[in-house]
Write a protein that binds this DNA or RNA. Structure first.
Length: 287
DNA sequence: AAGAGGCCCTGATAGC
DNA sequence: TGCTATCAGGGCCTCT
């Protein structure tokens, strides 16, 4: 589900409330996420304090008080819920239940704080959690991640060198986290629309001018989406349960056969599959 | 090296 | 109504 903007929105909605709170207890109800939740996960987190919440591309990072880190990736369908003790899941010998606005299924990990409960819910279980014991491990873990569009390293010459000579289409490069991190299928489509680049165009044929546009609009779109609270297709909500609004701003994503929204363009939005992902583009102004 | 394709999993929706 | 097929905000792994 969540691309960089959604993860950033979750991060912001978590940050103030749980900063400096101590983890009293952790309950793992299903260890079978993308990677198995390790046996010592609960024990390791117990009594640690959350100093800060960070985000790197699509990863949430809880900075703990002994300079270790809890990493969360939400995969396709993961969500984080932050609820008060009053409304949280209760676990008795006889049963497990939560207040009416909490999901009935797929709440795999619960983190009990003094006043709150953090819930990791993920129907498809493509997400995962990981403990990294120090900064070195953290750096190693992210060693293959390319720069975010917000990063200074994401500059013309970097993009130009990376793309030059590559036969693959530009869309799949925007989805390649080694090239640029944080962009997923929705925003890749939207960015290429703003750039007026056909998603099938081979990377080696992207002009310097187009590279400038990719650099500019990647940042522009992600920023805009963050300001709108992310995109709520399916049931994305921030940790407090509020929906985002960027889905109302989509120019191409999920708009198959609708009219192009560019002024004076009378094209239609087409849908085609590019490297197993739905790809939306205007057949007139993106070619 | 670079690129293509399979796979992990559940749920919503479309079509019969 | 109930079945089956297809598709979803991702990314790792293997094979050529």
């Amino acid at each position: 589900m969540p691309e960089l903007p959604e993860v950033e929105v979750i991060k912001q909605s978590l940050d103030k409330k749980i900063k400096f709170q101590k983890i009293n207890k952790v309950l793992v109800r299903n260890r079978n996420l993308r990677f198995k939740v390790p046996k010592n996960f609960e024990f390791f987190l117990k009594n640690k304090k959350i100093n800060k919440i960070l985000r790197k591309s699509k990863y949430l990072i809880f900075h703990l008080n002994n300079n270790s880190f809890l990493i969360i990736h939400l995969g396709m369908s993961g969500t984080i819920h932050l609820v008060s003790k009053k409304n949280c899941y209760k676990n008795t010998n006889a049963s497990f239940y939560g207040s009416s606005n909490l999901p009935i299924k797929h709440s795999h990990i619960l983190i009990f704080l003094k006043k709150h409960q953090i819930i990791y819910n993920d129907p498809r279980r493509f997400g995962f959690v990981k403990i990294l014991k120090n900064k070195k491990n953290l750096e190693f873990f992210f060693r293959n991640l390319g720069p975010e569009p917000f990063n200074n390293k994401f500059k013309i010459i970097y993009l130009y060198n990376y793309l030059s000579g590559k036969k693959k289409n530009i869309k799949s490069f925007l989805l390649d986290q080694k090239f640029v991190s944080g962009i997923g299928n929705i925003y890749a489509n939207e960015i290429l629309f703003y750039c007026k680049i056909n998603p099938f165009k081979q990377a080696k044929n992207i002009t310097k001018m187009e590279i400038g546009k990719i650099k500019y609009f990647s940042k522009f779109i992600l920023n805009k989406a963050i300001k709108k609270g992310g995109s709520s297709i399916k049931n994305f909500k921030n940790a407090k349960g509020n929906k985002g609004n960027y889905q109302n701003e989509f120019k191409v994503y999920d708009r198959e056969n609708l009219n192009c929204l560019k002024k004076d363009c009378y094209g239609k939005i087409k849908k085609k599959i590019v490297s197993k992902r739905s790809t939306f583009f205007c057949n007139r102004c993106q070619n």
